[in-house]
């Protein structure tokens, strides 16, 4: 009799386990369906850019299949990479981004440390204030900034407008608040006992920051670095407003101003320039992706 009941129970139990794994299988299928749709949607523009960049101007304007290259050529690439203009844009962009990242980190790491750890009068209000400044769009800021630079030039005789390096001072207004905010969150997730232990061990605030917080919060700092780099690399409005001479341009504006002449669009080179311009952030993301993800999800789980 007992063997009978076991036999009965056997299949029904099996079926239940089977249905659970079937649920899981369906969930996986659906997620693949949506991820594929998502990937197609977002890969569509870069693939189209890549195909176009391999075409001659004649082929681009010809009424052929836009998704196929009949006479592939690398001339767009060679022309751009040997053009002094494009290399100047690239150099300007690189210098601006690197300096902006450095300035941003030098300001926002100590700022975040102070706001997260040193309890002082008004520190919470200040932390919220930092975030609120990030919410003001740059489209509202460029006119007052322009006016400020003009007044500054009047008073001191130092002309800031139409120099690529002015962007080094302008971009941190966008990057510092957000990076500070990310890092406040990250620092807050570090157990308080850790800095107390360091302080009892004889460390000053600076030593605690540099020898404990920076190494422990490295994922958060890398996430903030990537953000600052991407923002300054891709920023369009400020360079459009503050730089006009060709040799002072950065990539995003440089490509537009030099490769569009009147109503003539040099599509092949525009696409090539955009692709080449997208490469550095892509490379940085690829290398630091793991850090980036753990940086953004900090605070969700402690540690």
């Amino acid at each position: 009799m007992t063997s009978m009941t076991i036999d009965k129970a056997g299949p029904s139990r099996k079926a239940r386990i089977g249905s659970m794994s079937r649920d899981r299988k369906w969930a996986m299928r659906w997620s693949y369906v949506f991820l594929t749709l998502f990937a197609i949607f977002f890969l569509f523009p870069p693939i189209y850019m890549f195909i176009t960049s391999l075409k001659t101007s004649a082929e681009i304007s010809a009424a052929t299949n836009p998704w196929w290259v009949y006479n592939p050529t690398l001339s767009n690439y060679t022309e751009l990479l040997t053009s002094n203009q494009f290399l100047t844009f690239f150099r300007n962009s690189a210098l601006v981004s690197i300096f902006v990242v450095i300035i941003t980190m030098l300001i926002s790491i100590p700022a975040a440390f102070a706001l997260a750890r040193m309890r002082f009068w008004g520190s919470t209000t200040l932390a919220t204030g930092v975030f609120l400044t990030y919410l003001i769009p740059d489209t509202l800021l460029f006119i007052p900034l322009f006016k400020m630079f003009a007044t500054f030039a009047q008073w001191t005789g130092i002309e800031l407008i139409n120099h690529w390096w002015v962007l080094i001072f302008v971009y941190p207004t966008l990057t510092v608040p957000f990076c500070t905010w990310i890092m406040i969150g990250y620092f807050a997730s570090i157990p308080k006992e850790l800095d107390e232990a360091a302080i009892v061990d004889g460390a000053s605030w600076t030593q605690t920051l540099l020898r404990i917080f920076v190494p422990v919060a490295l994922p958060g700092i890398i996430a903030a670095t990537i953000f600052a780099f991407t923002v300054s690399w891709a920023q369009f409005l400020y360079p459009l407003a503050f730089t006009s001479s060709v040799d002072q341009q950065v990539l995003p504006t440089g490509i537009i101003t030099t490769l569009i002449k009147g109503d003539v669009f040099n599509w092949g080179q525009i696409m090539t320039g955009a692709l080449l311009g997208a490469a550095p952030p892509l490379i940085i993301y690829a290398f630091l992706m793991d850090y980036y993800i753990s940086g953004l999800t900090a605070g969700a789980t402690k540690g």
């Binding site: 157990p191 850790l194 107390e196 232990a197 009892v200 404990i212 190494p215 422990v216």
Partner: peptide
């Protein structure tokens, strides 16, 4: 006197070891 100059050592409940 700040903690670093008190010449004390402290052991915490959650150990507070420097993870790196």
């Amino acid at each position: 006197v700040p903690p670093k100059d008190r010449d004390i050592a402290m052991v915490f409940q959650n150990y507070a070891l420097y993870p790196h």
